[in-house]
Design a protein around this nucleic acid. Structure first.
Lengths: 161, 161
DNA sequence: GTAATTGCAAAGGATTTGCAACAGT
DNA sequence: ACTGTTGCAAATCCTTTGCAATTAC
């Protein structure tokens, strides 16, 4: 049982929401992983514990967890969302993502923080947030001979002859 | 008719694919806009011209356009894709996006290019690409009194009392 | 007890796919 | 003519929603 679970319980009580078995179980799965979990990952984690929970309940609980600020939602462009808890992490950080095995490394960059501010100001925007994702192949996958998928970064057709 | 259409025709011929009316029309709509178009936007553009095209054809043509390198696909986390042609743009650039009106400003940052390289190397990754998006409220929307939606950036529940 | 949650199944939006009719080479 | 495309509808994927049965307070 995660030592942070009581924070979620407290949040639920503050909001006048029932503290249910299902909500606690979902939160505990998320709090006990330092990965960036998909809903499917969370389902698998629940199954491993022998918990049989409706998928709708997982979605509904994730919504509350995000609202509580205890969990952050990400969209890495895979067609579905991923979630990470915020304990013991930098409040704002960027992601380095292996496009083969989906390993995620977090890093913080003051340069990007400054850049957000600078670029927004230059264009008269009120900055709210940013996201920086670097995609590549991690060391381990490289060793197994995986190389970069074609990204359309070179552009032969645009070469006007 | 876009002056770049012949590049798409050439690409199709090189690939042994038929140059159809529909493919030309879709490409022309995309090439004539400097916006970041959703499929719905493209459909609207076609309707304006009096073209009646199946949605599946639009999706299939966008796939080819992306593969050709003439068009780039984006996912700004809205739940659907957007497309921009690559003519007269920086080959690699970042996006500043108004979360209210969806205006997109492009900017280039050498710092981010360097950061991608540096961070990937530090973690043994082979870098392939990155994406940086800054979200905020544009000047025009600010004038109309729009302010930043709550982003969950402050995190009261994580304050361990 | 009362109000909210759960679980299921149905609905939803974006995208894809199967297939008969059709157009490009 | 032959191969590949088009358009429609059905299917798919992730996510949300309606509703009767159940649980938290």
């Amino acid at each position: 049982m995660s030592p942070f679970l009581h924070l979620f319980r407290r949040y639920l009580r503050e909001q006048g929401l029932p503290v249910t078995q299902q909500r606690e179980t979902v939160a505990d799965v998320v709090f006990n992983s330092s990965d960036h979990l998909s809903i499917e990952d969370i389902e698998a984690g629940l199954k491993e514990r022998g918990e049989r929970l409706g998928k709708a309940t997982i979605y509904r609980t994730m919504e509350i967890l995000v609202r509580s600020g205890l969990v952050e939602e990400h969209d890495f462009g895979e067609g579905f969302k991923r979630y990470e808890h915020r304990f013991g992490r930098q409040p704002i950080h960027e992601h380095l993502i292996c496009t083969n095995c989906h390993t995620v490394v977090e890093f913080r960059s003051e340069e990007v923080m400054r850049l957000e501010e600078e670029v927004a100001r230059k264009h008269g925007f009120q900055p709210a947030r940013h996201r920086l994702e670097v995609f590549g192949i991690c060391a381990e996958c490289q060793e197994q001979g995986v190389s970069i998928e074609y990204q359309g970064l070179t552009c032969p057709a645009t070469q006007v002859a």
